[in-house]
Write a protein that binds this DNA or RNA. Structure first.
Lengths: 355, 355
DNA sequence: CGCGTTTCTGTAACCGTTTTCCGGAACAGT
DNA sequence: ACTGTTCCGGAAAACGGTTACAGAAACGCG
């Protein structure tokens, strides 16, 4: 066979079920049956087969197995990057739940590039993933939206599922499971907490129109102001992305422009809170003595900072995504859309202020 | 066909290459060739095929393809958990490099359980991963060591590779690639930094005998003391695991036992540094004014803390692992063993002390 | 117009499993 | 001893692609 010629340098071939069968003196069918477990086999035969398997160190070829009709089930997760703590936690949840349900976990990252995300989804489709879980923010232009909903349909057509985590639904008739958390609610709670402590001028750090997460949190912030009848000042909303150094930059610039015109800070997330905190410290402003502060995410930095923040059920999001996708796959019907609750974790970054 | 009966509830079937061929009025061979790219085909035929593909929204079955001899290459990574920043960074490196080399990335977590780790390796072997990358600490008992080196041989036999990241080799004749970073060297540098600043009594927080990472760093610490002819006091080595709350606990207990008998702290990693920092603060001890401090890892918390720490090339470890495994797979020979360098990042947690 | 080339396209074998369908052996009952 | 069950194990047909081989159509040329 010429086909055999192109083998990896050092290697014997991977042993096949046929070789096991020969060595055990039985047919391939018997080996297959014995290995797949529950099948009546004479103890002697079973022993012979098992010995052959051990001696050859045989493991089944997952591809052949999948092809023949016993697919090794798998779940795919696609995210921007795995180093962002939030994504990492979600991924952990996905992985945990997938393992619990006996599924392998495929992972791919996109670096935030919609193009690569689309490619990943296609890739996962080829791999017969039972569910493709998309996590995180993207700017959703129309072309992207269209192609993604096409993929949703394609996946649905073959009994698989597209799952959107922490991003808005694609549309009413797109068959995708959606797992969100309550950004607006959390922001409302955090802002109310500051307001109740007597703060009126609350800086919102991390505005970013078009990004659904940021938008949701901004909405909650504004609603809380409204509910407390505190006038809303657009000048208190600072724009920037969701990173540590951006938080640092935003606060630096703000303070460089003049003395603080706020008594409290709402940070879009804990990373930003970290940077902001640093910038404040460099200007001799202490938290919470001089400035109160709340964050969002409840990820590691908040522990170091003693930051009062909004807890997000990161891992729960991942677990729920897998669970819903898998049970929905079995049941069929309209795909579920759940919103997970968030709650405030009070630490030590807010001080009451009385007029 | 009875086989067809057990279909997922809602779904049409996944379309096959045969259906594409029929619709385009050509043979399957032609479709296969056209899709696999570089093959001379009449423009008209190609167009017809492409249209059929689009209309049926066909994607190839990766399993069938793999079976037939064009395996979709993949690389597997197995780690304790993806939420630990260090692992996450390594994973990111692996994923990046894998993508760059056109490989899919399979991921599995073990929760630190050797049993699950072994199961994962087997699983990955079934999936025909070109390399299986193991990251992180384990307590290596003999049974574990033996089975793992058996897997290494099994993988090697079929032209795949076992890669160990940040853990010690299994033995001289075990065909596994090893990528380490220089724990001892980094610890030496960090400790020397403290010693040069005039500190003599340096608390080592996070001793954990048997864990290679901890052991390596402790070695570096002791060597530095030696080199500076500072007597080594075992009472200055505190035991604990590598987490934030452990750092907190260790320092809390130390301070509860009596006034500080040290002027500087060497933390096994940045997480511990975070907890330690907090505990110090609660006792009114400021860093670096009252106590100097160095960490290890250069992960996010160190930014917030302004921590002087040892930088580890996390992502580089992951990338190197993939690169080495893949080129070694091609070349054959003795598997490489590399140690990546580390260096000190000076921030603002160490203050000179003069007698 | 016949023939050798060149270009495409079809046929069929094969990849390594699972599973259906069947046949033979052992064993008990009469 | 003959038949009916029960138990085991084998042969062979899928699964959905790739590719070696060969055949047909188109083309240039003497």
């Amino acid at each position: 066979m010429a086909r055999r010629a192109a083998e990896p340098a050092g290697g014997r071939r991977r042993s096949t079920i046929r070789e096991v069968a020969d060595r055990a003196g039985v047919s391939v069918a018997t080996v297959s049956r014995i290995l797949s477990g529950s099948y009546p086999a004479a103890p002697a035969t079973r022993a012979r087969v098992m010995r052959a398997v051990k001696e050859l160190d045989y493991v089944a070829n997952a591809h052949a197995r999948a092809l023949a009709g016993t697919p090794s089930k798998s779940v795919a997760i696609v995210l921007n990057s795995v180093i962002s703590p939030h994504y990492a936690h979600v991924a952990q949840g996905v992985e945990t739940q997938a393992a619990a349900e006996g599924r392998l976990c495929l992972i791919g990252t996109t670096g935030g590039d919609p193009e690569r995300e689309l490619a990943m989804v296609k890739f996962m489709r080829e791999q017969h993933a039972e569910a493709v879980i998309l996590v995180g923010n993207v700017v959703a232009d129309d072309r992207y939206r269209e192609r993604m909903s096409q993929y949703a349909h394609a996946l649905a057509a073959i009994g698989s599922r597209l799952v959107l985590c922490g991003r808005p639904p694609l549309g009413p008739d797109v068959p995708a499971v959606v797992v969100e958390y309550d950004n607006a609610g959390g922001a409302f709670a955090a802002t109310s907490h500051l307001l109740s402590a007597g703060h009126q001028r609350i800086l919102f750090v991390g505005r970013r129109p078009g990004y659904t997460t940021a938008d949701g949190r901004l909405t909650g912030y504004r609603r809380a102001l409204d509910a407390h009848r505190v006038p809303h000042d657009p000048a208190l909303e600072v724009e920037g992305t969701m990173e540590w150094h951006e938080g640092y930059r935003m606060m630096k610039e703000r303070l460089a422009a003049g003395p603080p015109d706020f008594t409290a800070v709402f940070c879009l997330n804990d990373l930003i809170a970290g940077g902001t905190h640093k910038a404040l410290a460099e200007h001799g402003l202490r938290v919470p003595d001089d400035v109160s502060m709340v964050g969002f995410d409840d990820l590691p930095p908040s522990l170091d900072l003693g930051l009062t923040t909004v807890h997000l059920p990161h891992e729960e999001v991942g677990r729920t995504a897998v669970r819903l996708a898998l049970e929905h796959e079995a049941r069929g019907g309209t795909p579920p859309h759940v919103t997970l609750g968030t709650h405030l974790v009070v630490r030590d970054s807010v001080r009451p202020r009385f007029r």
